[in-house]
């Protein structure tokens, strides 16, 4: 430290340290580095989406607290928690796609050329808009469903050929689903630009009836 060389060495270490502190700070989380590279518009969209999702979680926590209280008093009253078991079963039957389901929603009709990646994008978009159950014609889409190309312009859902024209039905909050599909610049608008000879229509449905997923 007394020699100039010592001071220089110290300075070099400090320089390195300065760089390291910042790099370390930036790599705290997998995503925080990416966030620093996003535009304000993207960050605002992420905030809106995270807010939505957090609200959904709060709603479910609220519901489950009520159900827990009800189940506790039922058990205390000697009735057992059969009502709660039935409620859970019904929810899981929908969520696993293992039973037929009914409810309101929308139908996206596709008449003309279409492909499996576009179908996968459409399903992804419907799920993102909160669809609770989806089917392509009479093939229910489940948690492990995959899409492929079929012969003569048909599509394959979980190994089964599904021929056009297609109706992709989704049960959920009708207006939310409808707006998500038809908004300006939304997925159906994009499809109309890409598949110019194909006709797309989105309709509100008061009651859809979707089959259970095929297979074991």
């Amino acid at each position: 430290m007394r020699s100039p060389a010592g001071a220089l060495a110290m300075a070099a270490v400090a320089l390195l340290l300065g760089v390291l502190v910042v790099s370390q700070f930036r790599s705290r989380d997998v995503y925080s580095r990416t966030l620093q590279q996003e535009t304000p518009e993207s960050l605002a969209r992420l905030i809106a989406d995270l807010n939505d999702r957090d609200r959904q979680l709060r709603d479910e926590i609220f519901d489950l607290r009520l159900r827990l209280e009800q189940a506790q008093s039922a058990v205390a009253g000697g009735q057992g928690s059969i009502a709660e078991a039935q409620r859970q079963l019904a929810q899981l039957q929908v969520f696993s796609a293992r039973s037929r389901v009914t409810g309101p929603g929308i139908a996206v009709r596709i008449d003309g050329a279409f492909d499996e990646r576009a179908l996968s994008d459409l399903v992804n978009e419907l799920r993102n808009a909160g669809a609770e159950a989806i089917a392509v014609n009479d093939a229910r889409v489940g948690p492990r469903s995959w899409f492929g190309p079929g012969s003569e312009g048909s599509l394959v859902v979980d190994g089964r050929a599904v021929r056009g024209p297609w109706a992709v039905s989704a049960i959920g909050a009708t207006e939310v689903l409808h707006v998500a599909m038809t908004r300006t610049g939304g997925i159906v608008g994009q499809f109309e630009l890409i598949y110019q000879r194909t006709r797309f229509s989105v309709t509100r449905e008061t009651s859809l009836d979707l089959p259970a997923i095929a297979g074991p």
Partner: peptide
Amino acid sequence: SSSSVYCVGGTIVVNGSITS
């Protein structure tokens, strides 16, 4: 069955949770 995967800029959102 409710999972969606999409991006906002370069950030990926899976099940409403962000990653990259």
